[in-house]
């Protein structure tokens, strides 16, 4: 689901923190600000932001999700790049919104679609950062879970390659990596059995490689996976990719 137009890059951006970081993962949003500022980027944060509207969109209530999308488009109006530390919410802007506004095009929503970047995609392909000057203190095996919304975007490749340049980091492959973790938002509520089984399978494949750290570009997948792992008695250390970037820089 690639964005179809040339997106604006540059050293001044707006941050969409996502509702999940707003509610649970404040440190991921913090790391996003810290890493971007470290790279000399000026980060604006529109106070009135809420959510991309994906829960309503995925459940088929497009009337509701269009309402949220219009709100978000208004909050992020202008011509600055909009940076999202989540492949899933970014894809909502440049793919989901296009789908739900097909029959009632909206200029502001379309403009948002054309300006939205998943965070690491922006760092690598927008800012041109190909190497990360970070270091782990000791050799560290990273299992990178490529979330599904990164399919067909530049993000998966961007995250893997950037993580690989960190000193002492090894990105280890694992089985059936193309398979979904089973979160899927409301899917995990109405398909509890299948969602749980998918998550457990994903964990099996990941843990088989004994990674030191599970990394993803989407906290929603990590919330689901690590929540399952916790209950199953096999907790796994995890971080958002941007936390890895920040933390290895400090170390």
């Amino acid at each position: 689901m690639p964005a179809t137009t040339q997106r604006p890059a540059g050293k001044k951006v707006l941050l969409m923190a996502t509702c999940l970081c707003d509610a649970f993962y404040d440190d991921v949003a913090r790391a996003t600000v810290e890493v971007l500022q470290h790279l000399g980027v000026e980060v604006g944060f529109p106070e009135n932001q809420t959510c991309c509207g994906q829960p309503a969109f995925n459940s088929g209530d497009w009337k509701s999700s269009r309402k949220v999308a219009r709100h978000t488009a208004e909050v992020f109006a202008g011509d600055l790049p909009v940076i999202v530390p989540s492949g899933s919410c970014a894809a909502m802007h440049f793919h989901g919104n296009r789908l739900q506004f097909e029959e009632c095009p909206d200029g502001a929503v379309e403009s948002l679609a054309n300006r939205t970047w998943e965070l690491i995609d922006f760092i690598v392909n927008g800012l041109g950062i190909r190497e990360w000057p970070g270091r782990f203190e000791k050799p560290t095996r990273l299992a990178f879970h490529r979330s599904c919304h990164l399919r067909g975007t530049g993000s998966g490749e961007a995250i893997t390659s950037l993580l690989s340049t960190i000193a002492n980091a090894e990105v280890v492959p694992f089985g059936q990596a193309e398979q979904c973790c089973g979160f899927g938002g409301t899917f995990s509520v109405t398909f509890p059995h299948i969602s749980g089984r998918m998550g457990s399978l994903k964990l099996d494949h990941i843990l088989e490689q004994h990674p030191d750290l599970l990394v993803s570009g989407d906290m929603s997948c990590l919330m689901h996976l690590t929540g399952l792992a916790q209950v199953q008695g096999r907790p796994v250390p995890h971080k958002h990719a941007v936390q890895v970037l920040r933390d290895t820089l400090q170390a």
Partner: peptide, 19 residues
């Protein structure tokens, strides 16, 4: 949902305060 998974700690608003 919570029967199968733990939920992370709710930290609503903390990022905004920090920023």
């Amino acid at each position: 949902w919570l029967g199968q998974r733990t939920l992370p700690e709710w930290r609503g608003g903390d990022f905004r305060k920090w920023l």
